[in-house]
Design a protein around this nucleic acid. Structure first.
Lengths: 119, 119
DNA sequence: GTTAGATATGTTTCACGGAACATATCGACC
DNA sequence: GGTCGATATGTTCCGTGAAACATATCTAAC
């Protein structure tokens, strides 16, 4: 239902839901283009995001290869795995740390719960 | 330096940094247009955001008045104050709950700290 | 040396959200 | 009753970021 989106703004780079999910799909599919397809984005865009990430971090997060059987492919590097799992942990921690307050907000929404009565 | 942006997506409404800051400025300035000006947005846009918030929540967050001395004005309702302070608390809790992991990410950035050496 | 499939980039087109512009309205005060 | 400053809304204009389109390139395998 209610979801939390979280974006981390570094000095000259940012990491948000889009890049994180892209990393996850690349890990699962072994391909930038397949990952992009699954997310409904063009290969161009997916590749651009990968490029951003690779150049923002000291070590590249995604290693890609051209040619070969299947035409090539991509996989997460150790750094890529680390970033992805850190992001997941950050999201999870943030969610759990704020669940109560978010519930309070939800209760104030129109058409939400309560609707006022005295039980 | 590194900042955290956080957006809450309800079923058919969302609350993020923009609306939260707008609420804060309205509280401080007592005017939608002044708040908008401070944030570099047109009155139209500021008013639109207020409209969204007022209709999303059971009780309006901003009460506005036309005419009168000064031409009118706007102020936060009790609900508005509550939402604003809940959002601030959510942001604060999220920040503190994720500080360690974010620091780890920062350490992996290019041009960031370390640069590898053996102290 | 041809095929295949994915990476790697450049260029052009285009939709859309916001900016800009334009008005109408309200009410205390003088 | 005219002025003022802010709210309230509609309409048009326009820049920017994404989509679409177009290629070029690479290499394992056959």
């Amino acid at each position: 239902m209610t979801t939390l989106k979280l974006r981390i703004l570094f000095d000259d780079a940012m990491l948000g839901p889009g890049k994180a999910q892209l990393l996850a799909r690349i890990r699962d599919t072994g391909s930038i283009s397949a990952a992009g397809r699954e997310m409904g984005m063009s290969y161009k865009r997916a590749w651009l995001l990968v490029e951003e990430m690779n150049s923002a971090f000291r070590d590249p997060l995604v290693a890609s290869a051209r040619g070969g059987p299947g035409g090539g492919g991509a996989r997460l590097t150790e750094a890529g795995e680390a970033v992805l799992s850190l992001y997941a942990e950050i999201l999870d921690r943030a969610r759990r740390a704020t669940a109560d307050q978010i519930a309070l907000l939800e209760a104030m929404l129109r058409g939400g719960p309560d609707m006022s009565e005295g039980k």
